[in-house]
Design a protein around this nucleic acid. Structure first.
Lengths: 143, 143
DNA sequence: ACAGAAATGTAGCCTCGGCTACATATCGGT
DNA sequence: ACCGATATGTAGCCGAGGCTACATTTCTGT
């Protein structure tokens, strides 16, 4: 990549393009997982709790939930909690599994627990299925 | 995290907040590294080349460069190429090292080369120094 | 039952990072 | 030296995701 950038342009561009796509999915995934967590813990997901846990103000959380609803991941009625659709639950499950796998791999290669948790939050959204599979295989080889 | 979300709120929120900060840095890092690549290869970085390699239109690249200039990472004169300041070069160097380390680690745990390159592009921006250090140590142990 | 507290909704503003359309400058070949 | 091709600049639009300020609804304790 260092020598002939011009010929690599399509490859490179595609790479960055994919990264941008992943970025736009990241928020959806984070909120979906968060809502799933809250429902498991308290039977419902309130806007206020979502906002507090995400570290944003409540109008921001409301907007995010609106987007989730638009994308068919969540449902809610005014002044009532937020719930996930089947689509949303599926995503939450996948995201949760991926998150765990990433954390486990980081721990396995010697990353300190706190850093592993922190970094996984950012990393997990950019890990492809191929990489995920490799992670799982690695963890099986050396537990 | 699955049981008592409410008490974990500050920790969680801080995590997401950090991730958001990293996100806003990611673009700066990508452009900086790209410009550095182009300068190494052709002695200068033209807006058109930057745009093509990043997979965006040229006005988008122009805007990004404007931001780089604002942040003191790059300099440029109208209709002339873009160059990095010392600050920018430093960042490029660090980013380049981190990128290589991430790719190497992915390869070491068995991720296929193409996936490693693709995913590293997204992952690298979210890897903390602690994690980076752990990666380096791991690679030393098993090369 | 009702008043104050807390939760939620809504409006409107900001920045960022995309884009298209159009204007201007530079470059290169004859 | 010129003219067409190419590169760059600029204006203005859009959606996403932050925010504050304010309105409304729900909840809660007396």
């Amino acid at each position: 990549m260092t020598q002939d950038n011009l010929d690599d342009a399509p490859v490179q561009a595609e790479r960055f393009s994919q990264t941008r796509t992943a970025q736009s999915q990241a928020l959806l995934e984070d909120y979906t997982e968060m809502i799933d967590d809250l429902i498991r813990a308290h039977g419902e997901a309130r806007i206020t709790d979502i906002a507090r846990l995400m570290g944003v103000t409540h109008p921001t959380a409301t907007k995010a939930v609106a987007r989730l609803k638009r994308e068919g991941l969540a449902v809610s009625r005014p002044y009532r909690g937020v719930f996930l659709t089947e689509l949303g639950s599926g995503m939450a499950e996948r995201v949760r599994g991926r998150h765990r796998l990433v954390v486990d791999l980081l721990l396995a290669v010697g990353v300190p627990p706190e850093a592993a948790e922190n970094d996984a939050e950012g990393i997990e959204h950019y890990v492809s299925d191929a990489t995920l599979t490799a992670f799982a295989a690695f963890l099986t080889r050396q537990p």
